[in-house]
Every structure is written in C-alpha cells, then in structure tokens.
Amino acid sequence: MRRTTVRRTALAASALSLALLVTACGSDEPAAKDKAKSEATKGAPAAPAAKALSQAELDKLMLEQADLPNHKITPAGKVDLVAAKGTKADKAECTPLVDVMALRAGGTPAASAGRKIMGIPKDPAKDASPEEKLKAAMDALSGTITGDVVASYEGQEAADVLAAIKKAGTDCAGGLTVTVPGEKVKVTKVEPASYTAGDEAVAYTVSVDLEGKPSTAHLVAIRKGGIVASFFAQSLAGSADQPKAVIDAQVKKLG
C-alpha cells in the first residue's frame, strides 16, 4: 500500500519537479520581471555596487561532489531548461518566486550556473529483510531534491533581485498557480521561514496541492555582494525538509 501511495504522489509531483533544477539566465516574462523589480526596489537602500564575475570565475564557486560526500550532485541538463521555459505564474507579481521554483536566475546576470542535489540514502544491510530493502528503496524515491542556482550581477542588480523575491513572498502569501508545460500546479500558501547568511537572505515554506494531497517545499535566496544563490527543495513523496546542509555548503563556497 505504501509503495502505491508513494508512486501516485510521485506522479502528481512530477509536473512541478520538471520545472526544477535548471540553469538559465532569465524568464520568458520580461515585462512581468521588470514590473516586479521596479515595485520591489522602491525606497530600498542601495547596496555597494558590485563587479560581476565571469562564467569561469562563477563555475569555481559551485558545489562539487567532494563538498557534500553524502549527496549526489549533478549539473542541470537540457530537459530541465526546456521545462523551465514554459513555467510561469498566473500573477505577474509572483514571477520572482516562480523564477526560483523553476531555478531560473532572476534579472539579467552576467553569469549563472546550476546544480541538482539529492541526499544519498544508506544501503540496507546485506542481511536486511525484504521489508527493510523495500523501505530503503522507498526512501531513495522520496528524498529531498534541491535545485541550487548561483548568479553573478553587475552593480546594484543582485540586491534588486533579492528585493523582488522578498516582495513577491509578501504579495503572493495567499497562493498562486504555477503553469508547467502541460500542467497547472496550485501553490496554496507562501509563509516566511528562517535562514540567515551572507549580506541578506530570505526564506519561505511553500505549500503545494498535488491532486488534493498537501506537500511542503522550501525556497531560500541569499545575497553575498553581487552574487545571489537561490534554492528550491521538494520531495516527490510529499513534504521536504529545508536543505540546510546543502545551503550551508554553497554559502561556504561563496566565501
């Protein structure tokens, strides 16, 4: 019974997960982004102007397998990029949130890179029972998947991108609908969460309705100088944990 339930939930979650774990430099909704950015930055204090990193410099800051030996780290692929292009919010003001959910770098970064990261479950003992082996297999399917995108910006734009995410979290607290190619996913609630790092950070707990089954995902964005690192984590089996180990490791690499 548990196996059937996990499989059903995984299929329901696949619509949103297709939009995860991508590396991209922008959204298909430039007008919505410009409006969100303009509204978010009204009256915001200016951050020191930053000099953008090159792609080669940014790539050196990305997580590698040695940084998280208990996780599987892989670059985003072409399939992820295709899914991201058609992912959008039903409300323009929610676009900065959907950028993070679809793992698109907000704004117009000089360079960006992405990774998809999943914890490696422990293998069952050699003398494990069939039930224990089945549980290990289910745990492997239901682990938290985290998308990690790091982007570098010129001047003030990194601060503007983070301000836009913060404003979208407030404007879209009551929920939104995310359109993924061929599917619509209902986000029922966006609630403030806690994470502190870098020059500034914002975190949210995102409640998702997967065909009537509630699911919890986590969204975190951090600015350090002219760099924004954004993370979106979910589990195909339902509720995910905030991927603190992954975020901590990436922040450490940023220096």
Rank of each mutant, 00 (worst) to 15 (best):
K72A: 15
A201M: 05
I222N: 08
A159Q: 04
I117D: 12
A105D: 08
E154S: 13
T87D: 10
A44Q: 13
P30I: 08
T188Y: 01
P96F: 10
V251M: 09
A240M: 03
V149H: 00
V246T: 14
A47P: 09
G43N: 05
M1Y: 00
T87C: 13
A173M: 01
P45Y: 04
A111D: 06
A76H: 12
T87G: 09
S142P: 01
H71T: 04
K253C: 11
K224W: 06
G143E: 11
E183V: 08
K126I: 05
T4S: 14
I227S: 01
A140I: 02
A76L: 12
A249K: 10
R223D: 06
V187T: 06
C172K: 04
A84W: 05
A47I: 07
S112M: 09
I222K: 05
P124M: 04
M138K: 09
T95N: 14
K122Y: 00
A197G: 11
P243T: 00
S27G: 08
V178I: 15
L58S: 07
A137P: 00
L219A: 11
L176A: 06
T23D: 14
R3I: 03
K186R: 14
L176F: 13
T41E: 09
Q250L: 05
K126R: 08
M138V: 09
A19G: 14
A102D: 01
A10T: 11
C25L: 09
T146R: 04
T144E: 06
A13Y: 01
G182T: 08
A24Y: 05
L63A: 13
K252H: 03
P243F: 03
K135R: 12
D90E: 07
E39D: 15
P30K: 03
L18C: 14
L16Y: 02
D28M: 13
A140V: 07
D209H: 08
Y195W: 10
H71L: 10
L134P: 00
A44P: 04
A203T: 02
A197E: 11
L254A: 05
V220K: 12
K37I: 06
E39N: 13
A128K: 05
C172Q: 08
A197D: 12
T177W: 06
M1W: 03
D123A: 15
C172R: 04
A201C: 06
E157R: 14
A140W: 03
H218A: 07
P45E: 11
L16S: 08
N70E: 15
H218T: 07
V178H: 09
I247Q: 12
T216P: 10
G147H: 03
A163K: 08
F231C: 14
K166V: 12
S239H: 14
D199N: 10
L210W: 00
A168Y: 02
C25R: 09
A249Y: 04
C25N: 12
A168N: 02
E131T: 08
D67I: 11
M101S: 01
S112H: 06
D99Y: 04
Y204A: 00
R3E: 15
S207Y: 05
E183Q: 10
M101H: 02
A229C: 02
V180L: 02
R8P: 00
T108C: 03
A173Q: 08
A49K: 15
T196K: 13
